[in-house]
């Protein structure tokens, strides 16, 4: 681990905004590009640069993508030891880079990997870390990063800053920001890839990965979709989710659900929306048989249009809904599908 004496405590020496590029088997996570897009906006206000950081056995090929999303520098550490994510060597590689190059702000995706990594890196660096933020802004007066995050299961929002320590670290939930590629490279500026050599040896890493199981459902980034059709306990059983899948297909979207739907085995955890699932803000969110517990609402209430179908006219989900439908979802959804199919064939005929 880093020698604490190597950490520069003069915060005026820290500049630029870094984004951690999370990758698995050389494939970058979408949240990293969402963060690069956000970093561009923050950097323009701070008048500084955006840099990307990746750690792995082979990550250099990610340069094209990170530059497309606005990074002007790409710091990489490549070593066989870093092939799969393991806390300790990743922690050391990333902390080493931070200590050497001193970023002012460091953004990391709030994924399982990002949360595991950020907590240890912030502790090594003895700096502040704000988890699961949903809003990032630069205070015009001080230039500090203001990070806003939900607490108490979303009942309360807190704006947090880190005035005396650097970098200002923050994790951000996937799907909170949009990823927007640049039309053209950043002002034609020369972009450098810095190859860091940090000595790793497999013997020093005590943790060994014996087995990896990719769940059959795989990893779904719900944040990708403009339309999400979501179901809760009110859907009654797993088979009934087929109608939600069909509706989602018709609308070019995907399906998801509440935590109760996960607990009851109707849907996999990878499709859970909410505090302990994913945060989404699609153009259209259709909630079927979901009561609207606060932990669910925090994950979806910023959706542009919310349509809720619930038999209980007082269900809290209606308090955030654009359109409230007090009906039995099991009867309503099939009818809606039928109606939409009718519309679709009429359109095609035209």
């Amino acid at each position: 681990m880093i020698d604490l004496n190597k950490i520069d405590s003069d915060i005026s020496h820290y500049k630029d905004i870094w984004v951690f590029i999370e990758q698995t088997n050389g494939q970058a996570e979408h949240v990293s590009f969402e963060l690069l897009t956000k970093a561009r906006e923050l950097a323009s206000q701070r008048n500084c640069h955006v840099a990307a950081v990746a750690v792995g056995n082979s990550v250099a090929h990610l340069a094209e993508d990170v530059f497309k999303y606005g990074a002007e520098k790409f710091y990489i550490v490549e070593d066989e030891v870093l092939k799969d994510y393991r806390t300790e060597p990743y922690r050391d590689a990333v902390s080493e880079l931070v200590v050497k190059y001193k970023p002012e702000i460091f953004l990391i995706g709030a994924t399982t990997q990002g949360r595991d990594l950020s907590g240890t890196v912030a502790t090594v660096l003895r700096t502040g870390l704000t988890a699961d933020t949903t809003k990032q802004e630069i205070d015009q007066e001080t230039g500090f990063l203001w990070m806003t995050r939900p607490t108490f299961g979303g009942s309360l929002m807190a704006t947090i800053f880190c005035p005396k320590h650097r970098p200002q670290m923050s994790t951000v939930r996937p799907g909170v920001f949009k990823a927007i590629p640049l039309d053209a490279p950043v002002n034609g500026e020369i972009i450098e890839i810095i190859r860091e050599k940090i000595e790793f040896s497999e013997e020093d890493v005590v943790k060994k990965i014996l087995k990896k199981v990719i769940s059959s459902e795989g990893n779904v980034t719900l944040g990708f979709y403009d339309v999400i059709v979501s179901g809760g306990k009110g859907m009654g059983n797993k088979e009934n989710f087929n109608m939600l899948k069909e509706l989602a297909d018709l609308l070019g979207g995907t399906w998801a659900g509440s935590r109760k739907a996960v607990e009851l085995g109707y849907i996999p955890q990878t499709r859970q929306v909410g505090q302990t699932g994913q945060t989404v803000h699609p153009k259209l969110y259709i909630a079927c048989g979901i009561s609207g517990a606060i932990q669910h609402l925090v994950g979806m209430q910023t959706s542009e249009i919310i349509i809720a179908i619930n038999t209980d006219k007082d269900a809290p989900i209606f308090n955030v809904s654009t359109y409230c439908i007090v009906e039995d979802a099991l009867k309503f959804v099939p009818k809606l599908i039928e109606e939409l199919k009718g519309m679709q064939s009429t359109r095609r005929a035209q």
Binding site: G128, S155, F161, C162, F318, S321, Y323, C324, I325
Partner: peptide, 27 residues
């Protein structure tokens, strides 16, 4: 290192329109 600048309750959304009519009309 981290300081809470402010804490606030999230903006309350307004309950939107309830779609009314017969079942078929609502569909």
């Amino acid at each position: 290192p981290t300081i809470v600048k402010k804490a606030f309750t999230p903006e309350k959304k307004q309950r939107g329109a309830t779609l009314t009519g017969t079942f078929d009309e609502v569909v």
